[in-house]
Amino acid sequence: MITKTPHIITEKGIEYQLGELKDNLIKYDFDKILNYLNVKGKLLFGDSFKIYNEDEVILYKLCIYFIQDSEACKKQNIDVDKGILLTGPVGCGKTSLMKLLRHIVPHHKSYKIIPCRNTVFSFNHLGYKTIEDYGNDKFYCFDDLGVEPSGRHYGKDCNVMGEILLSRYDLFLKSKIKTHCTTNLNAQELEIRYGNRVRSRMRQLFNLIAFDKESKDKRI
């Protein structure tokens, strides 16, 4: 359903205004977005959720991307047409942020979060139909890229996520269909895992947004 006030989001009867609407354009306020994310995060993940000051640089980049602020994105070398590859250490909050950020733009086409290990389990059961099924016009965020097991169906091995990324790359070229991913691996590790061909296409598919490698584990 299209809302006439996409800059105002209601949670449990309380309205959160993320910016000002003028001439069908929203001028977002980053502090108001952070306030809403803090509220929504607690609703999604429990009262222990909090926005960490050290993550605000990452959050700013993600927010300007999701609200499609092309001017601000250009200054940060972010291409609004590409997807997001969010990298960082285990437990730094990548998955939570990708689950959370989509809620600030309820008027935009959303994406489904798919654990990469689930795609392999599906492949092992259904075979190449799994890869075909992800070659559609839906938006996905593949979670925990690079730590999924290898696929095997009727005795044949397959690098399932590598094949899916190649399919998603073709979709991107043809229709600008976006794909997002989270990963604990760095660029070199991704190339070892998926090969140079996939890594090369990932550069064209994704904007790389990276947590500091010293980011603490927030799940401890």
Rank of each mutant, 00 (worst) to 15 (best):
K213A: 15
E189K: 12
I220S: 10
G151V: 02
G127D: 10
Y134T: 04
C73N: 06
I78E: 06
V120A: 05
I104S: 03
G83W: 04
Y134K: 09
K129R: 15
R203T: 13
G155C: 03
E71S: 13
I9A: 08
I8Y: 04
G162E: 01
F211D: 11
S110Q: 14
I113M: 09
D31H: 14
L97H: 00
T182Y: 00
E132Q: 15
D143V: 12
S70V: 11
N196F: 07
G41F: 11
P149H: 07
S167R: 09
K94E: 13
M161G: 01
D47G: 01
K178N: 01
C92V: 15
T95F: 05
G155R: 08
H7S: 11
L165S: 05
I51D: 08
E163L: 02
C181A: 15
L44G: 00
D47C: 07
Q204D: 15
I64Y: 03
Y111D: 07
E56S: 05
D69Q: 05
M161R: 01
S175L: 04
L62N: 08
K74M: 09
D31V: 06
D69E: 02
N24G: 09
C73V: 10
L100P: 00
L165R: 00
K42R: 14
K82E: 13
S215H: 02
S150V: 10
L101C: 01
N196P: 06
V90H: 08
D217H: 13
T95H: 00
E56F: 12
T179D: 07
M1H: 13
T179P: 04
L59G: 08
K82W: 07
E56Q: 15
T179Q: 10
V105I: 12
R102C: 08
K178V: 04
C141N: 06
V120D: 03
T183S: 15
Y169E: 07
Y36I: 07
K27L: 10
G19W: 11
C158P: 03
L173E: 12
R152F: 11
Y65C: 00
D69P: 08
V80P: 10
L185K: 05
M202V: 01
L190M: 11
D212M: 06
I51V: 15
F211Q: 00
F139K: 14
K4P: 10
F45I: 00
K40A: 13
